[in-house]
């Protein structure tokens, strides 16, 4: 049976005590929706050290095809920690448009 999303679940589908029995379902929440700033990149300065990835509290930074480290904006909360920690100032935080 394909797994129901939360919006499809009825009260009968809920596990006893709302226990979550499968890992990873938090990925369903697009927690980046309420971000007020987002990271932008000048990859020409990037030395691919991965420090931004280590520091990101959301674990949302992965390497793209070219090997540059980039945030998944579905989950990035715009905290700016990556920009602060990047040794070569690749990352610049900009305001989200209204």
């Amino acid at each position: 049976m394909p797994k129901k999303t939360e919006a499809e679940m009825t009260w009968k589908d809920i596990e006893v005590g709302c226990i979550v029995t499968e890992p990873g379902n938090a990925a369903q929440y697009k927690t980046g929706a309420w971000r007020s700033q987002r990271p932008t990149y000048t990859f020409s300065r990037c030395i691919k050290c991965g420090i931004c990835q280590m520091y990101c509290p959301e674990g949302c930074i992965t390497q793209n095809k070219e090997g540059f480290f980039e945030a998944n904006l579905d989950y990035c909360k715009g905290c700016g920690i990556c920009a602060k920690e990047c040794p070569t100032r690749v990352i610049n935080m900009v305001e989200e448009e209204e």
């Binding site: 939360e6 919006a7 679940m9 809920i14 005590g17 709302c18 226990i19 979550v20 029995t21 890992p23 929440y29």
Partner: peptide, 11 residues
């Protein structure tokens, strides 16, 4: 398992 999780308005 995970216990005591949060529930948004949808659930």
């Amino acid at each position: 398992v995970a216990m005591g999780d949060f529930a948004p308005p949808v659930i």
